[in-house]
Nucleic acid binder design. Structure first.
Lengths: 226, 226
DNA sequence: ATCTGGCTTTACGGGTTCTTTATGCCGGAG
DNA sequence: CTCCGGCATAAAGAACCCGTAAAGCCAGAT
């Protein structure tokens, strides 16, 4: 299993996909390509890239709309667009984009800006998160409690992993649901309760005192760091 | 004392210092100017800016040499240079610069990039606002008083967080209501009183002297920065 | 075909939080 | 002095949210 950063390239021109893709792979990154906004969103959910190179002129939606959605996942966004109007740059950056490069671009410069963006949004948190006697290994998708491996169902693991990715921070209901169940279920808060319950059953020693997965009423859940 | 971000502008051309300085100040920042690398370094130590706009062509030293020194302080660096060679950009970015803009530049774009850079370098630390013995961690959504965690209901936290986002400044009734209760309740000032009361109950030691959340009659509330 | 584990969906009791309304205090205006 | 606006306080019912339980459903395994 590789640990190289994964880059999602979104552009409707195949030539650009190829150009950027090969340059990035030569530089040691893994890459995913998407030609439409729809493709980009599913790739975002499934492949969990570390950064996105985003063209604004997509066939189905304006790339700008994607920026907040991508940033909500904590992923770096670099706009690569032919639009060079200042207003475009300003709105893109203010929507949360991490950088803005205009076409035609210099490949080496884009690579340097990718490095910078990855540095900024370093998801470089240690791959293994510890909380009490529970350890979550985010790369191997394994969970142990007091050293013994615990088997988790897909949604259970998704729930826990999403919390473990930002230990101690509150993850909102919507964030969890979007990450684990998908955009279609962002409102189904009940799922979270069920998942939390089964997780606590498996991971918490004392059923009466929730020491691992804590509830933030009306907002979301969070993992107790120590 | 103001809490607006402080920007250090380093350039040997007075015209540019003036241009950027006035633009930034119009945008609400505080600015410091430096014409040489030496001046820049002392300003860095004394004024503790939040970001540096750095020209590379300085009379005494090459601006590139300054980049690592500035980044060592955890301060954002945006290069603003006439050198547009790709190699320059790559080395600057790889030395740790957060962005690179070529002259002639568009002022609005530079402002947007300043905002982005500030966002990046602030995101690294978890943003904690202190007021007396109360600490508000805006990224983790946690509040402590004298080190002990205090649990806050959603509206309570929203109220406090809105104040903490601009410590010391008066937040109007309408602003608070819009931010926490939503557009539909911008007129329900009563809610604020109730929320303020329960917050004071939880956070203030002396019930008779409101030392944390102060009322600005007829206008709004503000957090005493301390 | 049957079983089983996992996911979805619905329901309910108990606790917390929000909203709403009423009351008293204070200071400035009339 | 009295009135009035703006405020803090208080309390109570409504609304909301949570954990828990359980039943139905689906798909893959047996």
């Amino acid at each position: 299993m590789s640990n190289e950063p994964k880059i999602l390239i979104v552009d409707d021109e195949r030539a650009i996909l190829r150009l950027l893709g090969s340059a990035l792979e030569r530089a040691g990154y893994r890459t995913i390509a998407a030609e439409t906004a729809r493709e980009a969103l599913t790739a975002l959910q499934i492949d969990k890239p570390d950064a996105v190179l985003l063209d604004l002129g997509l066939p189905d939606r304006d790339g700008l709309e994607l920026v907040p959605l991508i940033k909500a996942e904590g992923v770096a966004v670099i706009i690569v667009s032919a639009r060079e109007a200042t207003e475009q740059k300003v709105t893109a950056l203010d929507l949360g984009a991490d950088d803005y490069v205009t076409k035609p671009f210099d490949t080496e410069e884009v690579l340097a800006r990718v490095r910078t963006a990855l540095r900024h949004c370093r998801a470089a948190e240690s791959e293994i998160v510890t909380a009490g006697d529970v350890e979550v290994d985010l790369t191997r998708r394994r969970v142990t409690r007091a050293g013994d491996e615990v088997h988790l169902a897909p949604k259970e693991y998704g729930f826990l992993a999403e919390l473990a990715r930002h230990p101690g921070r509150v993850i909102t209901h919507a964030q969890l649901l979007r990450a684990v169940w998908g955009e279609a279920h962002v409102a189904d808060v009940e799922y979270l309760r069920v998942a939390a319950r089964s997780l606590r059953k498996k991971l918490e020693a004392d059923a009466s005192a929730p020491s691992l997965i804590r509830n933030e009423p009306g907002v979301g859940y969070r993992l107790i760091a120590r």
